[in-house]
Simulated assay, not measured.
Amino acid sequence: MQAQPKPITGAPQWLEKSVKVASQQLKAAADAYQPGFNPRSTNTDGSTRLADYKDWITGFFPGSLWYGYELTGEDKLAKDAKRFTLGLDSLRYLTHTHDLGFMIYCSYGNAYRITKDKGYLPVLEQGAVNLSARFSPVTGVIRSWDFGEWKYPVIIDNMMNLEYLYWAAQQFRQPKYTNIASTHALTTIKNHFRADNSSYHVVDYDPKTGAVLQKGTHQGLTNESAWARGQAWGLYGYTMCYQNTKNQKFLAQAEKIAAYIMNHPNTPADKVPVWDYDVHNVKSERAPRDASAAAVIASALIELSTQVKDGKKYLDYAEDILKSLSGDQYLAKPGENNFFILKHSVGAFLFNSEIDTPLAYADYYYLEALKRYAEIKHYYKK
C-alpha cells in the first residue's frame, strides 16, 4: 500500500465533524454487512436494502470506504475497503450493463489508485473490454439498457461511466477507449440537451441507422422536465470529459449545465434540489429533496472550479452545498440511519422507490466532494 494518507488538519468545524461522522458510520457499516451484499438504501419498514454484485450501485460502498480511508488515514477503513472490493470479483464477467463504471471503477478503480496493487487490474481490464463492447459506431453511443421497449436506449447517467474508459485507455494502452468515450460525449451533446441546457433522461436510437427515435424520461416528472440527478450526471460527466481530453466543447457544455443548475429559480435556499427541477411547489409532499443530486453537483463543481479562470463561483456554490449536507438536516447521527452518512435522497420517485431515504451513491459523492474540497483548501496532503 502507498504511504498512508494524512488526516485533515486545520479544517473548519463542519468539515471535521462530517469526516468524523463518516468514519464512524463507515466502520459500523463494514462490521454490520457482508462483502457481496452491500448497503444500498433503507426499505419502507426501516431495514437496510442490500445489493448483490449485479446491482448498479454495488461499487459505491467499497468506494466510500476508500474515500473514508483517504480522509482519515485509518487502517481499519483501508482493510474494510479491500475486503468489500474483493467481494465484487465477479463483476469482470458482466456484459449486460453500461454501469460498469459505477460498479468497477468506483470500487476497484479507487482501490488501484490508492494502493497501486496490481492485483486489482485484471477485473478493471476485463470490465473495460465489456463496457467498450456496448458501443456502436452507428449510433455513436454506448447502449445503456437491455430491457424495455426501446430499440437502443441511452440515458444521461451513462456520461458517468466514461471516466472508466478514459482511465483504461491510458492504463491498458487502448486508445480506442478514448475515442469511444469522446464520441459518446459528443453525440450526447447533440441529442440529449434542450435549448436551456437541461437534459432529457432517455434518448432512444435506431440501432440500424443511428437516427433518434424518441426523447423522454424514465425517472423524471415528465418527458420534458429536468430530473435533478440527471442534470447532476451531465455536469459531472462533461467536467470529467474535459479533464481527460481538454476538448473545449466539453468544458463549454459543463459550464452551460452549471449555469442552468446554479441559476434555477426552483432551487431551495440550501441549494439541495428537489428530485426534479420542474416540481414547482418545492414545499409539497411531491417534492422531497435529493441529497444524492446535491452531492454529485458539489463534487463536479469543485472539479470544474479548477478548470476555469473564474472558478471561485463554482467552488463557493459547492461549499454552500457541502455545508448544507453537513448540517443536522442531512447528516446522520452516528449509529443511526442504518449507518448511511446522508439522509433525504430520492431514487425513483415515479416508481415509489427509495423516496426520502439514504442512498449509497449519495454517500459516495459526498465523500468524494469532501476529499476534493479538503485538497483544494489544503486541509490535508496525500
Rank of each mutant, 00 (worst) to 15 (best):
Q4V: 11
K6L: 12
K6Q: 15
P7N: 06
G10C: 12
P12I: 15
E16T: 15
K20Q: 14
L26K: 10
A28Q: 15
A30W: 08
Q34Y: 13
P35A: 14
G36L: 06
F37S: 11
F37K: 12
F37E: 09
T42D: 14
G46H: 12
T48I: 13
D52V: 02
F60D: 05
F60I: 12
G63D: 03
W66L: 08
Y69C: 01
E70F: 07
G73I: 01
E74D: 15
L77Y: 00
A78D: 02
K79I: 10
A81I: 08
K82C: 05
R83S: 11
T85W: 11
D89I: 13
D89M: 14
T95I: 15
T95Y: 15
D99A: 02
L100Y: 13
G101S: 11
G101V: 07
F102I: 07
I104A: 02
C106V: 01
S107W: 08
S107G: 11
G109K: 05
Y112K: 08
L121K: 08
E125Y: 05
A128Y: 06
A128K: 05
L131W: 04
S132D: 11
R134T: 06
G140Y: 05
D146K: 10
Y152P: 06
D157C: 03
M159L: 11
M159P: 01
L162G: 00
E163F: 01
E163L: 08
Q171I: 09
F172R: 05
R173F: 10
P175A: 07
N179M: 09
I180L: 02
H184S: 02
T187V: 03
T188K: 00
N191F: 11
F193R: 02
F193L: 03
D196W: 00
H201I: 01
H201V: 04
D206G: 09
G210I: 11
V212C: 08
K215L: 03
T217R: 00
G220H: 01
L221M: 10
T222E: 13
S225H: 02
S225A: 13
S225E: 03
R229E: 00
Y238F: 08
M240R: 14
M240V: 14
N244Y: 07
K249S: 14
A252L: 12
A252C: 04
A254V: 07
E255I: 07
E255K: 05
K256A: 13
K256H: 14
A258D: 03
Y260D: 04
Y260G: 00
N263P: 14
N266T: 10
T267P: 00
P268T: 09
A269M: 15
W275F: 09
Y277F: 11
D278K: 04
V279W: 02
N281M: 06
A291M: 06
S292C: 04
A294I: 03
A298P: 08
S305A: 11
T306A: 13
T306C: 08
V308K: 04
Y314E: 01
L315M: 11
E319I: 14
K323R: 15
S326G: 04
G327M: 08
G327Y: 01
Q329P: 08
Y330F: 06
A332Q: 01
A332D: 03
P334L: 02
G335K: 04
N338A: 09
I341H: 08
I341E: 05
I341N: 06
H344M: 12
H344W: 14
S345V: 05
G347V: 04
L350K: 15
P358D: 07
A360C: 12
Y361W: 11
Y366A: 04
E368P: 07
K371P: 01
E375Y: 12
I376H: 11
K382G: 09
